[in-house]
Write a protein that binds this DNA or RNA. Structure first.
Lengths: 194, 194
DNA sequence: CATAAAACCGAGCAAGCGCTAGTTAACGCA
DNA sequence: TGCGTTAACTAGCGCTTGCTCGGTTTTATG
């Protein structure tokens, strides 16, 4: 079979699959449910994807690629380390909200990927995290913070990623405020101003 | 059927189930796999549990109850807010490592619980988080930190819970060092001492 | 407007799923 | 010795799962 990975139709299907996988989990979402939500019959699904797992892979891949793009764009014209860290935090939150389905799936359904798929996605994730490593290193260089850089990156990304568990925008706290609080925490600045 | 919820055998089975659910996910773990790992036949499983979902519930419940116990015990004899926060962070990491299987399952398989089970476990989780709220409030009272308390609790617990994604003890970083770094971050203390 | 490619349908297979029913074996206690 | 309880067994039912396949419709292109 010869599948067109960049077809417009396929991207629509991936977005629909993301929503279902996010809501019900990968294993609990059957190909029939996917097909129903897509307005086609279950057999037709395999015209677009070789197997169910490939749908999962595509969902996560799309989310990661978009995150990468947003992050790169967010910091490319900034020079001050603190500004760049803030922009990165905002960009991260913004993709987490915008592509919430895909990122929730990435977090929860990692296990269901084949080993080959996992390895490919690990590369994407490493590339993304290296941006964070870079900017945190800049903050260290500017004397804004000291200590274990890898640990700080992980704690920061952990706190951010965990927001999918509880944060809903528009209920009191704005995303930018959340990003500001995180940056203040990472850089150990007093919260007296707020 | 009359199941003994506190039987020793049942606790063993719950621990075994935790390992399998953690490694492969709830949906991907069949009752036959569980039975195999337990050294019994699949039918015999239902002598101990009413259905598969009840096993999942028991795994998560056990993990939460233990976490609660460890946390309460860790801070009961301490009075200084900073000490209590540090003890709480250490206790949290310690249960996260000790009962790693159960906590990973709690994070990943929440969705697969019935609504009734979820509600019961939410009570346990709220009780646990209220300990954190209490200690963070004490830190505010002592002037150690200012700002949005609920947000700080969530960012802190998020950073800690996310450690299951990357942290392996014995590889460079000790749990106590990790807890110390987190407390320093939450309390916005300079990391110059390290 | 002819033709190829892409998208989809409908029926169904083989395997595996959670769970049930009825039975047996071992043990403590009267 | 006899009885109730607990824990295990065997066999399999009814259903769902991911996926296949041959054929049909729709869409895009020169």
């Amino acid at each position: 079979m010869n599948l067109n990975k960049n077809s417009k139709r396929r991207k629509e299907l991936v977005a629909i699959a993301a929503r279902l996988f996010c809501d019900q989990g990968y294993e609990s979402t059957t190909v029939r449910m996917l097909a129903d939500a897509m307005g086609i019959k279950s057999g037709s699904l395999f015209h677009h994807f070789n197997d169910k797992q490939e749908i999962l892979f595509s969902v996560i891949e799309a989310g990661m690629q978009h995150a990468m793009q947003i992050a790169t764009q967010a910091i490319c014209e900034l020079e001050q380390p603190r500004e760049r860290l803030m922009a990165l935090a905002r960009a991260h939150l913004s993709t987490l909200l915008e592509d919430r389905d895909a990122h929730v799936v990435a977090i929860y359904e990692w296990r269901s990927l084949t080993e080959a798929s996992r390895q490919e996605l690990v590369k994407l994730r490493d590339a993304y995290e290296s941006i964070w490593s870079q900017v945190i290193a800049e903050c260290h260089g500017a004397g804004l913070i000291q200590g274990n850089q890898g640990l700080q990156r992980r704690l920061a990304l952990g706190a951010l990623n965990w927001t999918v568990q509880w944060y809903r925008p528009g209920v009191g706290l704005e995303p930018d405020d959340l990003a500001a609080e995180l940056v203040a925490m990472v850089l150990r600045e007093d919260a007296c101003g707020k």
